[in-house]
């Protein structure tokens, strides 16, 4: 964990949409959740930003990191499992907006 400016914007249970940011470099937001809506499952606290660290940067300001939960049926067209199945991924705050 790292220190960050301000507290986390989202709390457990908040609905969020994952942005599709056009970042060319190193990112940690997999393609399959971009544009999808999920629910904050857990707030991990602030972490240095990998998009900056990957290029020798300081990673500051640190970004709050969240575990976000998605319904499999909403992520994958034709998901064959039951409707309660979930996929969860860690997403940095600057990739999220309220939904």
């Amino acid at each position: 964990m790292a220190s960050s400016v301000g507290g986390p914007k989202f709390r457990r249970g908040d609905r969020v949409r994952v942005l599709s940011l056009d970042v060319k470099g190193h990112v940690r937001t997999p393609w399959y959740i971009q544009g999808k809506t999920g629910v904050i499952e857990r707030s991990h606290g602030p972490y240095l930003n990998p998009e900056s660290l990957a290029y020798g940067g300081s990673g500051l300001p640190a970004q709050p990191l969240y575990l976000v939960r998605f319904n499999q049926l909403e992520v994958w067209e034709g998901y064959t499992g039951p409707g309660d199945d979930r996929v969860l991924a860690d997403v940095f705050e600057h990739w999220l907006e309220p939904a």
Binding site: H44, Q72, D85, R86, L88
Partner: peptide, 15 residues
Amino acid sequence: EPNVEVRVLDSTADI
């Protein structure tokens, strides 16, 4: 079982 909720954790970041 179908009544078990399967939760896939994709470790995308620092955890």
